[in-house]
Amino acid sequence: MEAIQEHKGLVFPLNRTNIDTDQIIPKQFLKRIERTGFGQFLFYHWRFDDDGQKRTDFELNQSKYNGASVLLAGENFGCGSSREHAPWALLDYGFQVVIAPSFADIFYNNALKNGIIPIIMDETQLNQWMKQAENSEFILDIDLEKQRIIAESGTEVSFDIPAYHKEKLLNGWDEIALTLQHEDKITAYEK
């Protein structure tokens, strides 16, 4: 996993609650045996109609969101299936940060394993950003090290993230290698 300390990018607001991983990446794209190339299928049935044409009513298809890399979403983001294809698709599409009032447990973990920063944010603040991002080009600067989000206007908001998750993201550590440092204990347990 790539280390990530800071990310500054264009915001895409997706004001829906309970966005499940079936929507993030539909099942017909889960048959691949690679980790890469899932971005083209992100939110597939929201982005494309039955003939594979872009849907004009889905906001992500608007040119003003081209290159968006910070996703804002409603509560319980990533609920449902445990498919890690969901963060793979988000990352491959270009999303590096997801900000929501709450996340489903498995998605939250899966995101962290892939170097996506999942940020839990108070709904009032989030709604304010949603509006700004709907109305104009809106950029947020996420400083993981300092746990701060800075808007272009200069306003700053802090966020919480468990220290051990933060450390892993900052360093891009291989978790298996870390665990194997405790291999003697695993072996002892097995006896």
């Binding site: 980790r35 445990s82 498919r83 890690e84 963060p87 498995i106 973990n109 899966n110 394993k113 892939n114 978790e175 298996i176 665990t179 194997l180 291999e183 695993i186 097995e190």
Partner: peptide, 18 residues
């Protein structure tokens, strides 16, 4: 409990999970 693919790899390699 359900886990993601990175955790599947982790369990295959270490038979343990954080």
């Amino acid at each position: 409990f359900g886990i993601g693919t990175s955790e599947v790899e982790h369990v295959l390699a270490t038979q343990s999970i954080w």
